[in-house]
């Protein structure tokens, strides 16, 4: 369940930073970049929103770990733990 919550958080953020992207049918195993036409500038904004909303820091070298919803869940799950249990 925690994984699903993390994915929901990420999709919420994508809806904010890329309002024109269609997030209704995202394959969690596939790269977000390809499915939603996200580029590095959009990822910058996803990172920024994670920091603003959840105080989660994602260092530059870890950006590749946000490439799909599955990898986001794996990487962000532990960092978002406090928010997932509350």
């Amino acid at each position: 369940m925690a994984d699903e919550k993390v994915k929901g958080i990420v999709l919420d953020i994508i809806a904010t930073v890329a309002p024109d992207a269609d997030i209704s049918d995202v394959d969690p195993a596939k790269r977000l970049r390809d499915q939603l036409d996200l580029d590095s500038m959009d990822f910058l904004d996803i990172v920024m929103e994670l920091r603003k909303r959840y105080k989660v820091e994602v260092p530059k070298e870890d950006y590749p770990r946000l490439e799909s919803l599955d990898s986001c869940a794996e990487y962000l799950g532990p960092k978002l733990e406090a928010h997932l249990t509350s």
Partner: peptide
């Protein structure tokens, strides 16, 4: 029209419709 064209990038980055 979705995709990485400059106009779309700008709209996203500035969060304008």
């Amino acid at each position: 029209h979705r995709g990485g064209q400059p106009l779309n990038r700008i709209l996203r980055q500035l969060r304008l419709s």
